[in-house]
Design a protein around this nucleic acid. Structure first.
Lengths: 247, 247
DNA sequence: TGCACAGGATTGTTCAACAATTCTGTGGAT
DNA sequence: ATCCACAGAATTGTTGAACAATCCTGTGCA
């Protein structure tokens, strides 16, 4: 299937807000970001300017502005004279993701401000993760896991680091979307996350950071393994979905 | 002076490269980035679409694409229906800068890969910093300082963190450009940097990270102090250079 | 001095056009 | 049958003009 989705969302001038002007490009960027995150636009698929602009009801110029924004977020890859494609992270990108996470997450654990409210948030999240595991909800575990690690980085108090972490987690989601089968990746790590939060509550920051780094090492290794398996299963063409016919 | 500079650089189709097409927007973004970094475009000044597009010899649409990119990098601030302005970081932005630096720099020191080559690089840089101080070159000290801290983050091995650090250092440059007087900010810290590298060579990572965090605390405090002084000197209008006439 | 208001300037967005490049499919040569 | 050249189609890159929406400016009036 070609990337340009069919159902176009509400046109820019639908509601009666005071300043509906001057938001189209950002709005388009948000729509595309959302569809990519939701997996509707699969990694590697091409985003045709003409198809998308007519489908979304905006001009090519405005769409291009949105593309510039998304390319800056690495949500989308721009190849000159070829077009833009949904980012399709592979093994190297996964390694980079974990290089980043192995720095900023333990740093936030070690040096962040662990307020009682933050601690309560973290505990609520690991609770949700446990519930999700007990009810067998892979989606719920994935969500809780992302929320937990996002909250961990939030301990740093830095908006910029949170943004970076959000980008990295979005890229993680793309990695999962690009994999053929979605193996039960998260259930192994629920207990590790519980342990992390317990150590934080106990004030054992050094141990919490060390454990977190071990966890990240293990998760990276497992993910790379899954990725290699997946690559074996479908020998070619999985990462460059350019053709238009049946998938 | 209005923001649209006069001398337009070489037009897109000047050299005889194979693919001179498909680079205008990125090229424009680079030009603007450079002029802002060089201080030619002062913080707070407005970047008029019409003036800039004619001065640079590109269309408004292409210029807007470049603006989207730069806004994503926080080099430029986009206010709907008002225009885009060179970012003008104040006290809050400085605090955020140091929140980021206090996380990623010590993290790289603690957990990065300190190869002999990286160590040699760091020592070469502190050497340059010392030379600059001895010869009284404020510019040289500033350059060496930025190079050092960029290299420290480079220990993490992560391209993304390097990019983030580059952005943060670019914002630091804007802070200095926004200040009326450029006090001798760096000379105090040359010895601290020397100490940092020595500890790294000795393998005392924990101490190196702790010292680095102290250094960042001190630098932040001093910078915020200078910023407050500066604000006292010129009570108003310094951060919103919108008018066009004489400055 | 303070405020409404008209006019001009600027941004936001679209459209149509053209140049440059890539993609596609056809035909010929080996 | 495979490979290569090549023309035509499709797509991207970029421009210019146009118009709507919003902001800014200066004027006149209370």
């Amino acid at each position: 299937m070609v990337a340009a989705a069919t159902g176009h969302p509400a046109p820019p001038d639908s509601s009666a807000g005071p300043a509906e002007h001057a938001h189209t490009a950002a709005w388009i960027a948000g729509v595309l970001r959302g569809r990519i995150a939701a997996g509707e636009l699969t990694p590697g698929s091409k985003l045709s300017e003409q198809a998308l602009s007519t489908a979304l009801g905006v001009s090519r110029n405005t769409l291009r502005e949105a593309f510039s924004t998304l390319a800056g977020e690495a949500v989308v890859t721009k190849i000159p004279n070829r077009g833009v494609f949904v980012a399709s992270p592979g093994a190297e990108e996964v390694r980079e993701i974990y290089r980043v996470r192995r720095m900023i997450e333990p740093a936030a654990v070690l040096w962040g401000e662990v307020t009682p409210e933050a601690l309560a948030d973290l505990e609520a999240i690991v609770g949700r993760a446990r519930d999700a595991r007990d009810s067998g909800s892979v989606h719920g575990m994935a969500d809780a896991n992302q929320a937990l690690h996002s909250a961990v980085v939030g301990l740093s108090g830095s908006e910029e680091l949170r943004t970076l972490m959000a980008r990295v987690l979005a890229e993680m989601r793309l990695v999962f979307h690009a994999m053929a089968s979605a193996p039960d990746f998260h259930s192994h790590y629920v207990d590790r996350n519980v342990e992390l939060v317990e150590r934080l509550r106990a004030g054992e920051r050094t141990e919490a950071a060390a454990g977190l780094r071990e966890y990240l090492d293990a998760a990276e290794a497992e993910l790379l393994g899954h990725l290699a398996d997946d690559r074996e299963d479908r020998p070619q063409g999985a990462r460059q979905v350019t053709r238009r016919g049946s998938g």
